[in-house]
């Protein structure tokens, strides 16, 4: 476990020293502040659209950060040959994968902290009220959700050689699930066979990332999700992440590295 944590720390350091997260944060902040500065019929209390724009940008940034960070881990290590120096140490392939995953996931967690802190500042300054339980749920659900695309991107990097292809495919897949996942079964029921059955199977097999999207609850000040349901969602994400990482390990464990 120490080896995995040490590798995770490397990933975290790398993210903090790259420009990606700062660029995303800057863009999110800039667009949110510009949107918030708009004159909406001289009413300064209009706040929900600002919250929605900010949260949507945070979601998009989260996806981009998670997938691009995870997708480049293995290819970068292989290209720079740091993979060999690392695996020449007493590090198992599983520890390597777990360390990479943990590093990417923790890095996303740190980034989300800053993003949501900014969101909280913007929301509180306009609403004169805080919804700590809701915001905590939103941040934690998104953080756990991101574990799935990270695992997918890590597994993808064992299948696709080019990091860009892997990142693109994973992002397209994740955005597709986020936007359309909950409707697939509905669509499937209206399709002729065998398309209906195939789509239904896909619906049940896919990790439903849209479950973790509680932006509507936060934007419109609905009460938070019951805590048992929240915990169930976290466990759902953990289960899918574990499954995908195990598949990745099965691919990686006997792979010749050169």
């Amino acid at each position: 476990m120490t080896a995995a944590l040490a590798i995770a720390q490397l990933v975290l350091l790398e993210l903090l020293r790259r420009k990606d997260v700062y660029v995303l944060f800057f863009l999110t902040g800039l667009i949110t502040l510009v949107a918030g500065a708009a004159n909406i019929f001289e009413d300064a209390r209009v706040v929900r659209y600002v919250k929605e724009i900010c949260l949507t940008l945070i979601w998009i940034s989260g996806f981009v950060l998670a997938v691009t960070t995870a997708a480049r881990q293995l290819p970068a290590e292989r290209e720079s040959r740091t993979l060999f120096t690392l695996l020449a140490k007493p590090v198992s392939r599983w520890q390597f994968l777990a360390g990479k995953f943990l590093g990417c996931w923790l890095a996303c967690g740190v980034a989300l902290l800053f993003f949501y802190a900014f969101f909280g500042f913007v929301a509180a300054s306009r609403e004169r009220d805080v919804d700590l339980a809701g915001w905590f749920q939103a941040a934690s659900l998104q953080w756990f959700m991101l574990a799935v695309p990270i695992a997918l991107a890590l597994a993808g990097s064992l299948v696709w050689a080019a990091a860009s292809s892997n990142a693109t495919l994973t992002l397209v897949g994740c955005f597709g699930i986020w936007l359309l996942g909950r409707h697939l079964h509905k669509v499937a029921l209206g399709l002729p066979e065998p398309a209906g059955t195939l789509l239904t199977l896909l619906y049940f097999a896919l990790p439903h990332l849209e479950l973790f999207d509680v932006r509507d609850l936060i934007v419109h000040r609905w009460p938070p999700v019951p805590w048992l349901v929240w915990l169930g969602a976290l466990l759902y994400a953990a289960a899918y992440t574990g499954l995908i990482l195990n598949l990745a390990w099965l691919l990686f464990r006997r792979r010749a590295l050169n």
Partner: peptide, 28 residues
């Protein structure tokens, strides 16, 4: 064991001290 590869490339975003610290932690 200690291993020195033919092509010596290390994590460019680290300092020498950070690299040795990370490897040291891996060795326990």
């Amino acid at each position: 064991i200690g291993y020195l590869p033919e092509l010596t490339y290390y994590y460019k975003f680290l300092t020498a001290e950070e690299l040795l610290r990370a490897y040291g932690r891996i060795f326990g």
